[in-house]
Computed example of a mutant assay.
Amino acid sequence: MIRCVLLTLASIVLRLINPENLLFGEHSNLSTSQLAALHWYLKWGLPLWAIVDFNSVLNRWAENRWRWATDKSDWDWKSEVAVVTGGSAGIGACVVKELVAHGIRVAVLDIIPLSESFTTKEQHLLRYYKCNITSRDDLHRAAEAIRSDLGSPSILINNAGIGNAYTILAIPQESLRMMFEINIVSHWGTVQEFLPDMIAKKKGHIMGVASLASFVALAGAVDYSCTKAGLLAFHEGLTQELKHRYKCPQIQTTIVHPNWTRSAITSHPAIAAGLKRIGAKVLEPEDVAEAMVKQIIAVKSGQIILGPSISPKIRALPLWLQELIRDSQANVVTGDGSTAGG
């Protein structure tokens, strides 16, 4: 904010002085025309810089629920409990490792056993609950067990997700239903289980893992793109309800949009071949997990874009540019298959 004010003042001063009055020392080799050009660029460049800086300030203010400061004193990481869906392997397991490194106790909800990558020391801070998150009964039983074993969670990370590789005409109904049940409907179940305690304590953090597919629909993965775009809407709506329905802006919400990341999805032959064909850069799950947990430790809300920063702005581009971007990704997902079940 201070930098923004200084830039604005500097731009005002530049508009009040003549180019010849710019001070660059007596040994300056700049000609009158060069001074005039430099003056012009500074006169217009500094205000633009100030506008961009001010926009960033407003964005951070909005992400913080129109509050200038966040009270971090309520957070004692060694006393916090986090729930991570799909935390047995992949990105989820890396997130669990990052959380326990901060002393946070973690409850892992997954249908597959914990990865053998967890050390004995890490296992002391985590509990595994075999749970099918698409079953409300299963989820409720796991939630009750977590509250009994560890206490009420203050952090919920909806990480579980699957990927399909089917065209709209080819996808089996069961695969389509499973995609929506896991990738988006389950978020209603976990939030309904754990949010009430957070509201009662006016403290919590809910994080959802979406994708850059939230902004660009992919041929051959229309169902996946739909669920990720839906998660963006879920995140925005949840944030609004916390502020305006539950009067609880203290609860943080974050949605994460990773680019292609090394996982069961990108390892699927129908997708791996396409990524290789276009020379796509694949993120490491450890890097994604580090960014996610860093956001939690900072007690910040907002969107995390792990990929081209222009991604959220794609929908604001001219239609022809949007279509060129979609065309460039049209052959990444080919063939038939699903990562469901592992």
Rank of each mutant, 00 (worst) to 15 (best):
I2S: 05
R3C: 08
L7Q: 14
T8I: 13
L9S: 14
S11F: 04
L14F: 11
L14Q: 07
R15Q: 08
R15T: 08
L16P: 00
L16W: 06
N18D: 08
E20M: 07
F24A: 14
E26Y: 14
L30A: 11
S33Y: 09
L35Y: 11
A37D: 11
L38E: 03
H39V: 03
H39C: 07
W40H: 14
Y41S: 03
K43A: 09
L48Q: 05
I51P: 00
V52R: 12
F54Y: 13
V57C: 08
R60S: 14
K72S: 12
D74K: 15
W77M: 14
E80F: 02
V83Q: 10
G86M: 08
G87N: 09
G90W: 00
I91R: 06
A93L: 08
A93K: 05
V95F: 11
V96P: 05
L99Q: 02
V100H: 06
G103N: 07
V106H: 02
A107H: 05
D110Q: 03
I112V: 15
I112K: 15
P113T: 07
L114A: 13
E116D: 10
E116C: 06
T119W: 14
T120D: 11
K121G: 05
Q123N: 08
C131F: 03
N132P: 11
I133V: 14
S135F: 02
R141T: 08
A142R: 02
A143I: 00
E144F: 06
G151D: 07
S152C: 13
P153L: 04
S154E: 03
L156R: 05
G161D: 07
I162G: 00
I168H: 08
L169H: 10
Q173M: 13
L176M: 07
I182N: 12
G189I: 09
P196I: 15
M198E: 01
H205I: 15
I206Y: 02
M207D: 09
G208L: 10
A210S: 15
A213D: 01
S214F: 00
A219S: 14
G220W: 00
G220C: 05
D223I: 01
Y224L: 01
K228C: 06
G237T: 09
L242P: 00
K243W: 05
Y246E: 12
K247Y: 01
C248E: 10
I251W: 06
Q252E: 04
V256L: 14
H257F: 14
H257I: 10
W260G: 06
R262P: 01
H268T: 01
A272W: 01
A273I: 13
K276D: 15
I278T: 01
G279H: 07
V282F: 06
E286C: 01
D287V: 13
V288C: 03
M292P: 09
M292T: 01
K294E: 13
I297E: 04
A298M: 13
S301I: 03
S301L: 04
G302D: 01
I304Q: 13
I304W: 02
S309F: 10
I314V: 14
R315S: 09
P318F: 09
L319V: 12
W320P: 00
Q322C: 04
Q322K: 07
L324F: 10
L324S: 10
R326V: 03
S328G: 03
S328L: 04
G341A: 06
